[in-house]
């Protein structure tokens, strides 16, 4: 029976059936649930950042891992969410929860504006365009009055839920944990559906996919928009946690870090991506002891991972 399950393909046989994924997953969830009860504020803060990266990496994984589109400007959608929510609560007194659907719509619109004309391009051209898009969004945020210019936006309202105000780092930790679990559930549902398969068909052979009846531009656009929506929701919660955001949180470096998480863990499948995201968030903290050598040690560690595990730490073992 075990052998049989193991030879089953991940997309056909529900991934939940595989013990090699379920057991570590449950263990990680158990640790995640109780962590703030035992950890100090610093550890909880780092863990919250890790959860933010889990959400962002899962979102980017839809674009890069499922649909095979190299996106170098993903932080732009994160920025769209953070600024939409920040401006609406700080300047217009919106309720935080109401800003989430607005940010989702804004991300969709941004996704269509950038995606519709460019998704016909093949991968490397697309990478250049998304790179430009990421920079455009950041520079716009730097130069508009409503976004607070280079110094950014301050005084973003803390969200309330049933009269309870999210204030401490533990509160935001659990908020991000809920968001991460929700995102993982959404990704898992879509991955095993008709559209999810269509993304994989397009990723593996675009022409064959078109020849079998898949509208490749629509499929890519949907992946791109879904990734954008996830990043924007993460942005909303990020803005609420920080209460202040500035264009420097949404640089090309940020886009690269998210992409690094996806590639490092093993793009395409959820467990690997989650692992990669956590690593990206933890590595700088773990290596704090290295002092000024930290960037060097980080680079060497990353190179080693890519050399010895070219498909990621927990690669997509399809079939």
């Amino acid at each position: 029976m075990i052998d049989e399950v193991r030879t089953m393909p991940t997309a056909v046989q529900p991934q939940l059936m595989r013990w090699s994924v379920v057991l570590p997953g449950l263990a990680a969830l158990a640790v995640a649930l109780v962590l703030p009860q035992f950890a100090n504020a610093y550890v909880t803060e780092v863990a919250t950042t890790a959860l933010l990266y889990v959400v962002l990496c899962l979102g980017l994984n839809i674009v890069v891992g499922y649909a095979g589109l190299l996106d170098l400007g993903y932080a732009a959608f994160f920025a769209v969410g953070a600024y939409t929510s920040g401006i609406l609560t700080a300047e217009f007194g919106f309720n935080f929860w109401l800003t989430i659907p607005v940010a989702m719509v804004a991300a969709c619109v941004a996704g269509i504006i950038i995606g519709a004309p460019t998704l016909r391009l093949r991968s490397d051209y697309l990478a250049i365009v998304t790179l430009g898009f990421g920079e455009i969004v950041r520079i716009i945020a730097r130069n508009l009055d409503i976004t607070g210019g280079a110094s950014g936006l301050i005084g973003i309202e803390r969200p309330e839920i049933f009269g309870f105000k999210l204030m401490q780092v533990q509160h935001f930790y659990y908020a991000f944990l809920v968001l991460a679990l929700l995102t993982a559930f959404v990704c898992l549902s879509v991955e095993r559906s008709r559209m999810g398969r269509a993304w994989f068909y397009v990723r593996y052979d675009e022409d064959a996919a078109a020849g079998i009846g898949i509208n490749r531009v629509t499929a890519k656009l949907q992946a791109y928009m879904m990734g954008a929506v996830i990043a924007s929701v993460a942005g909303c919660l990020y803005a609420a946690k920080m209460t202040a955001i500035s264009p420097e949180s949404f640089t090309f470096n940020q886009s690269l870090l998210i992409l690094l998480g996806v590639v490092l863990g093993g793009m395409g499948r959820i467990p690997g991506v989650v692992l990669g995201a956590v690593l990206v968030a933890l590595l700088p903290e773990v290596l704090r002891g290295a002092g000024t050598y930290r960037p060097l040690v980080t680079a060497v560690a990353l190179l080693a991972i890519m050399l010895f595990r070219p498909n990621g730490l927990w690669p997509d073992k399809r079939v």
Binding site: V12, R194, R197, F200, Y201, D207, G211, I212, I214, V319
Partner: peptide
């Protein structure tokens, strides 16, 4: 031959049904 080599045989056969079905994300 232009199969989706990294996917299963069944997933390949299922791809043909894409244009005959409609449910989305």
């Amino acid at each position: 031959i232009r199969l989706f080599k990294e996917m299963t045989v069944l997933e390949n056969a299922m791809s043909g049904q894409h244009c005959r079905s409609r449910h989305g994300i």
